[in-house]
């Protein structure tokens, strides 16, 4: 091409930058592939039915992660049940009700601040507020409430984004037919933001599964097998916390890698689900 006419300095610059770009992109990609392959290769052989279906016992030196799996499920359910109404409500307020620009700016700034706060600080404040001040002790519920604050901005943002895509004419049409504001929200606006709520849920589940620092001091690290209601009021480790305890405190790397492989699988699944729902809703709207 024109390259022959370029000065040597320019050619060298172009070649260098181009090579650097390819190397860095390849490095990033290789890193992801390596992490997946390594964790799965080390972890999958350690996953057994006994590991998945029993609780740990010091007597027989058995390691089982069933309580941790259940705790994770409980905490995901509890967190979503609480955060959904709050987050969706906040988003509806921002897009449908708020007229004062300053109020909106303050709320959005608060949400941004929340999403920037590190999880260890959430854990600390959760411990002080939920466990001690509200007297919940170290319990899954206290952990779930801490996670509610962490996930609030996510649900708010995704819901808000999908509310913005509901055409203004729908609302005007409903108002024109004599519907009150609440009725418009219930029948026109809410159905329009289902996609945002679902995306928000998927993202939140991913975040809850991966969270550990915020749960260490709020939900604790017990491995007792409980039903959901008992479970929520007693302390319990989620999968990530269990991984940390097995790897760092007990040196049980087999169990730790088994949990890591499960978490990696779930992360893959969640990413896939997020992509697919996004694609589905985009096609539906188009």
């Amino acid at each position: 091409m024109l390259n022959a006419k370029l000065s040597r300095k320019r050619r060298r610059y172009i070649g260098f930058m181009r090579a650097l770009m390819y190397v860095c992109a390849a490095l990033t990609y290789a890193l992801v592939l390596f992490l997946i392959a390594y964790v799965l290769a080390k972890g999958v052989p350690n996953i057994s039915w006994e590991l998945l279906s029993t609780s740990p016992s010091y007597l027989t030196e058995r390691i089982g992660i069933l309580p941790d799996i259940l705790n994770t499920v409980y905490i995901v359910i509890a967190t979503l049940l609480i955060v959904l109404p709050l987050g969706v409500g906040a988003a509806i307020y921002l897009t449908e009700y708020a007229k004062n620009k300053k109020v909106v700016a303050v709320i959005e700034y608060a949400a941004e601040t929340l999403s920037g706060i590190p999880s260890i600080i959430y854990g600390l404040v959760g411990m002080l507020f939920f466990c001690q001040f509200l007297g919940m002790q170290t319990s899954l519920l206290a952990g779930a409430l801490t996670l509610v604050i962490m996930n609030l901005p996510t649900i708010m943002r995704t819901t808000q984004e999908s509310l913005k895509t509901v055409p203004q004419s729908y609302r005007e049409g409903a108002f024109g037919l004599g519907a009150g504001k609440w009725r418009v929200i219930r029948t026109v606006v809410l159905p329009g933001c289902v996609d945002g709520v679902i995306t928000g849920c998927i993202l939140s589940v991913g975040r809850i599964l991966g969270e550990s620092a915020a749960l260490l001091f709020t939900a604790g690290f017990a491995h007792a097998l409980n039903g959901i209601f008992e479970g929520l009021t007693s302390a319990g480790a989620t999968l990530t916390v269990a991984l940390y305890v097995y790897a760092k405190e007990q040196g049980e790397f087999g169990a730790a890698f088994a949990i890591a492989a499960i978490l990696m699988g779930l992360t893959l699944l969640i990413n896939l689900a997020a992509t697919l729902t996004q694609r589905y809703f985009r096609r539906k709207k188009a």
Partner: peptide, 15 residues
Amino acid sequence: AVSLLAGIPSVVYGL
């Protein structure tokens, strides 16, 4: 791949 990297729990990185 990049969003997967973002989704991997920090304890897995630690491990």
